[in-house]
Design a protein around this nucleic acid. Structure first.
Length: 418
RNA sequence: CGGGGCGUAGCGCAGCCUGGUAGCGCGUCUGCUUUGGGAGCAGAAAGUCGAAGGUUCGAAUCCUUUCGCCCCGACCA
């Protein structure tokens, strides 16, 4: 893509009262644009990042046996009355449809996927099954904040699994942890993302959150020593019984010695048991002909929040720093002097060669000054920068810079550092 | 939902206290000069001053109401 053709305008100044780093950088870089509090447009660069994150999530969900589908965002009141959440979920958006009918916008989808599951899963032979979707969720948060981290409209992957036994649910749940770890690793957050024990609700001892450590996080986690990236959230730090089963050789008071860290919740998995299947009288026929209620699990992960977290955690003083798998383009190619024929020719050729090799490249063919191009490309945060100036063009060379490390190398045109 | 701050050109801001019909920077457009870390000069276009009501000869400015944005708190399958 030529920069001159791209729907993009980066900016140097944004409002001084926007303090959230992810919102600052993503707005300055032209990745997103705020429409209202907690609601953002994803511009072409930003949407490419979002789609790459979503593709990674899909691949990992597919790999563990999830099947993608798409549920409605518009729901009838009756489904939410059935679970008690029409009045019980305070962030539920409610609206009136034709004929004055009460409707809700999807804040989560147990109310839709459970009755849907009933229509397909009728015999023990139909189990287990897991379906997932990625779609826009709506939550009427009292206070939207922190850029992409807490919006009223946001992208969410939600998977729901159906099982005939607790053991089967448990096994699937463990596999989902591996899949989630893969997602965070591929998005560049593997080293700072912790599997975090959280309270489990009615049907299990624990649920789990995935927490990415950063000073801008809103949650506080307590890091479990000697277990890799495992932590405990503050909900259960006061529960001695729970602590004893998580911390080896736990003695009362040990929790006070745990190292703490601020973190962003980037995922949440739950064992739902029969909470929703029960609410909808979801029964299947077992081997012996008896009617039984399946157990369910749900597995949430927000791509837009993950994108904001990456912007927050991996950026530096010059701008964004995208990991290669989710960068909007792999290479930012700059022609420093498009007015110089030899320089322009060398850059055009490099652009063509990269494209021919299937490398995603953003080509700054604009008339802007060299300094402006460097600064803008640093802000955009593509993993590799390739510079063609009049001097290097004359020598048949291209200067490369790795954005994350600043490491530079000069290579003959046609040779690439990756 | 409680508290605080702020709404003035596409974006970022000054002007408001002490009323007299609006200015700066960035960006945009034209021309010339520049060209390796957000270039210089000259010129130009662009604003119902968030909205409504009130006070006044006259309101961006004072008063009332209202909407929005940001922050703190509460909340957060």
């Amino acid at each position: 893509m030529r920069l001159s053709q791209l729907f993009l305008k980066t900016t140097r100044d944004i409002s001084k009262d926007e303090v959230s780093k992810n919102a600052q950088l993503l707005t300055k870089g032209g990745y997103v644009n705020q429409l209202m509090a907690g609601v953002y447009s994803y511009l072409p660069l930003g949407y490419r990042v979002l789609q790459k994150i979503e593709r990674i999530i899909c691949e990992e969900m597919d790999a563990m046996g999830g099947q993608e589908l798409l549920l409605p965002a518009l729901h009838p009141k009756e489904n939410w009355l059935a679970t008690g959440r029409w009045d019980g979920l305070d962030v539920l958006f409610k609206l009136k449809g034709a004929g004055d009918r009460d409707l809700a916008l999807g804040a989560t989808h147990e109310e839709v996927v459970t009755p849907l599951g009933m229509t397909v899963l009728q015999s023990y032979k139909d189990f287990p099954k897991a379906v997932y979707q990625i779609q826009t969720k709506f939550r009427n948060e009292a206070r939207a904040k922190s850029g992409l981290l807490r919006g009223r409209e946001f992208r969410m992957k939600d998977m729901y699994s159906f099982h005939t036994s607790q053991d089967d649910l448990d096994a699937f749940y463990e596999r989902s942890i591996e899949a989630y770890v893969n997602v965070y690793r591929r998005c560049g957050l593997g080293d700072v993302t912790y599997l975090t024990y959280a309270s489990g609700g009615t049907f299990s001892k624990y649920s789990h959150e995935f927490q990415t450590v950063t000073d801008s996080g809103e949650d506080l986690i307590y890091i479990v020593p000697g277990k890799g990236r495992v932590a405990i959230n503050k909900e259960i730090i006061d529960d001695p019984e729970a602590l004893a089963s998580i911390l080896p050789n736990y003695q009362p008071g040990d929790e006070k010695k745990l190292e703490t860290a601020k973190a962003i919740e980037v995922g949440n998995i739950f064992k739902l048991g029969t909470k929703y299947s029960g609410a909808f009288d979801f029964e299947y026929t077992d081997k012996d002909g008896s009617r039984k209620v399946p157990v369910m699990g749900c597995y949430g992960l927000g791509p837009s929040r993950l994108m904001g977290t990456v912007a927050e955690v991996l950026s530096d003083e010059h701008g964004l720093v995208w990991p290669e798998e989710i960068a909007p383009y792999k290479v930012g190619l700059m022609c420093l002097r498009p007015g110089d024929e030899a320089c322009k020719k060398a850059a055009d050729e490099a652009y063509a060669a990269l494209q021919k090799a299937g490398v995603e490249v953003l080509y700054d063919d604009s008339e802007a000054s060299a300094g402006e191009k460097f600064a803008q490309m640093d802000l955009l945060g593509l993993p590799w920068q390739a510079v063609v100036g009049p001097k290097s063009a004359a020598e048949g060379k291209i200067e490369w810079k790795k954005r994350a490390t600043g490491e530079k190398s000069v290579l003959l045109a046609g040779a690439w550092p990756f």
